[in-house]
């Protein structure tokens, strides 16, 4: 399992390729990439800042990854999350799960994203024409996480 919290940009394609590079037992890789949008809740967004809780962030992501590994037969799991300043169009988050067969990879990837959305200590602050504003948590994210209980 690889957990990375970084300010630097990353290449999602290269990350996907690395998921099976050293393991011919991998039959399925499912990945998710989240991007910064240029519009949210009725306002243009010209960029955002991602605050986090150094120390807890890595632990929270690792805990989610361990739980995914206990639920599904994974061969590899990667979670990569950006922090700091980001512009529209940039990738924010990358989650990929590798397994022998597809269903475990599909489910683990969705599970990690749903748990990350509700349990990992990140906060987005968007730049809009009206000034910066904190993004509000969504109840739909909690409903999505509930389905794994």
């Amino acid at each position: 399992m690889a957990i990375r919290v970084q300010a630097d940009a990353f290449d999602p394609g290269a990350e996907v390729n690395a998921m099976h590079a050293a393991n011919a037992g991998v039959g399925a890789v499912v990945s998710f990439v989240g991007y910064v949008r240029d519009f949210n809740d009725g306002r243009d967004v010209s960029g955002m800042f991602l605050e986090h809780y150094p120390g807890m962030t890595e632990k929270a992501l690792a805990k989610i990854g361990v739980e995914a590994g206990q639920r599904w037969p994974l061969l590899k799991l990667e979670v990569l999350h950006r922090i700091g300043a980001l512009e529209p169009g940039e990738p924010i988050v990358f989650v990929a799960a590798a397994s022998a067969h597809r269903q475990a990879a599909f489910d683990a990837c969705a599970f990690v994203m749903d748990y990350l959305k509700t349990r990992a200590p990140f906060w987005k602050k968007e730049n809009t024409p009206d000034g910066p504003r904190w993004v509000e948590g969504r109840s739909s994210d909690h409903a999505a996480a509930e389905r794994w209980k």
């Binding site: 999350h81 924010i92 988050v93 959305k117 509700t118 990992a120 990140f122 906060w123 987005k124």
Partner: peptide, 8 residues
């Protein structure tokens, strides 16, 4: 203490 998280 913190508000609901909004990563991802």
């Amino acid at each position: 203490f913190f508000p609901p998280v909004t990563g991802g």
